[in-house]
Design a protein around this nucleic acid. Structure first.
Length: 430
RNA sequence: UGCUCGGUAGCUCAAUGGUAGAGCAGGCGGCUGUUAACCGUCUGGUUGCAGGUUCAAGUCCUGCCCGAGCAGCCA
């Protein structure tokens, strides 16, 4: 008999099926035992009654503990009393292992305890649901970009230089020379998009900052599209279309997971294009009216982003930051070189920045001047300057922080729940 | 790195300076419709570590360790 995944049981009503999984919980009424089984796709209740099974099999079912691994055969039937609406009347049972003393009970636990058992915590309904939504977000983003003619190009993790200064990078030894773990694939993508037109990198990035907040991880995944012949306006339109597509795909394909997470999907349904746009200068003015002590030229902190986010029910772009507080490669506004042609996308509901993007400088002399002004080693950027020497074109791109996006769409309170094994300050086990 | 809060049974927590407790998990017994079942019963402790005050410290004081929240930092 072939195995049926639990989420598909609805198509097998009245039929005999085989289900394999782990025991999520068990309750017994003496001669009637209720087993709640998980197989990674969903939960189903299985009924074991003394009438249906041999004495030996019944006693085996009675001994099952949380997370014991098993396989059972039985008939599927609809029953409103059961979780998910279906249940299986067990006819035979095979146990792979009786699990002893599983440490995580289905009660509430503290964060420290759960993090020390991360390899088991991921089995919980909560974390499993987040990981499924994460997979859907990645899948949707890839579908979106692939269907629009982007090529995925993988850029190196081991890099010879810092993108902008070395203080935030993890240093490793590369055959006796210092090397650094990538904090972005963008500069390489500027090269690959001159080869392939439209590209994206999706991979891990690393920051050695001593950040200890609910928004930071030391290792996180970033989606970084880069497009030749695309200027900032078109760049922003692609960003909002991408975010809209991701959210609508999650709503379409992950309703069970969103329900388990108790996510208010009416808020996600409001994420429709176009997204509101504010300039940096407008934001400073709004913040000052709200009583924040901030002046033109200061960068925004988390409380500022939250305040702006609360103005709208959709993500909001903040554009035209002062060039002085942004990266060296950003194209200055052609009308006002004090400003950069850039935008940060602030997620709704106070979740903060999920995208940072900009048009890149394509003029050789201007880029060289910026590198010098930022006191960056010009030798390290020779190859990057070459891109402006040989057939330079206007180009733009952005970086989407995957975990922050997952955090927002799932409505979580902490980014550590968005990745199977979070790397946090002073915490790298397991 | 700074500020704040915390560390008591496997877990979640309680305990006026005066006998360290409950619920859950686990063991045993009961129950044919449970949803974090229920009922009975049993097991379970170096109160983070070190020192100090006191007749007496989980509780007060000092130092340290660990964690959490917030901020800073942060393409």
């Amino acid at each position: 008999m072939s195995r049926v995944m639990i989420k598909n049981l609805g198509s097998f009503i009245g039929k005999k099926v085989k289900v394999s999984g782990w025991l999520y919980s068990r309750t017994s009424k003496g001669k009637l035992i209720f087993l709640l089984i998980r197989d990674g796709t969903a939960l189903v209740q299985a009924i074991v009654s003394r009438q249906m099974l041999s004495e030996e099999q019944f006693n085996l079912a009675d001994k099952l503990t949380q997370e014991s691994s098993l396989e059972l055969i039985g008939v599927v039937r609809e029953d409103k009393r059961a979780v998910g609406g279906y249940e299986i009347e067990v006819e035979s049972l095979r146990v792979f292992q009786i699990c002893e003393n599983y440490p995580i009970s289905p009660k509430k636990h503290g964060v420290e305890f759960l993090l020390s058992l991360q390899h088991l915590w991921i089995r919980s309904q909560h974390i499993s649901s987040v990981l499924k939504i994460r997979a859907e977000i990645i899948s949707a983003a890839r579908n979106f970009l692939n269907s629009r003619g982007f090529y995925q190009v993988d850029t190196p993790i081991l890099t010879p230089f810092a993108c902008e200064g070395t203080s935030t990078l993890f240093e490793v030894e590369y055959f006796g020379e210092p090397a650094y773990l990538a904090q972005s694939g963008q500069l390489y993508n500027e090269a690959t998009c001159m080869a392939l037109g439209k590209v994206y990198t999706f991979g891990p990035t690393f920051r050695a900052e001593k950040s200890r907040t609910r928004r930071h991880l030391m290792e996180f995944w970033m989606l970084e599209p880069e497009m030749a012949f695309v200027e900032q306006e078109e760049n922003m339109v692609i960003q909002e279309e991408l975010i809209y597509y991701i959210v609508s795909e999650v709503l379409r394909n992950c309703s069970n997971e969103l329900a388990i997470l108790k996510r208010d999907i009416s808020l996600l349904k409001k994420v429709q294009t176009p997204f509101p746009r504010l300039t940096y200068s407008q934001v400073v003015e709004i913040l000052r009216e709200k009583g924040f002590d901030i002046k033109w030229g200061d960068d925004f902190g988390a409380p500022h982003e939250t305040a702006i986010s609360s103005l709208y029910e959709k993500p909001v772009f903040i554009t035209h930051y002062p060039a002085s507080i942004k990266a060296f490669y950003m194209q200055p506004d052609f009308n006002n070189p004090e400003l950069a042609l850039c935008a940060d996308l602030i997620a709704s509901e106070g979740y903060g920045e999920i995208i940072g993007g900009s048009q890149r400088i394509h003029d050789y002399d201007l880029l060289k001047k910026k590198i010098t002004e930022h006191h960056l080693p010009i030798e390290a950027y020779q190859w990057y300057l070459d891109l402006r020497k040989y057939g330079s074109v206007p180009h733009s791109g952005f970086g989407l922080g995957l975990e922050r996006t997952v955090c927002w769409i799932c409505g979580l309170s902490h980014i550590r729940e968005t990745i199977a094994f979070p790397r946090m300050l002073d915490k790298i086990y397991p």
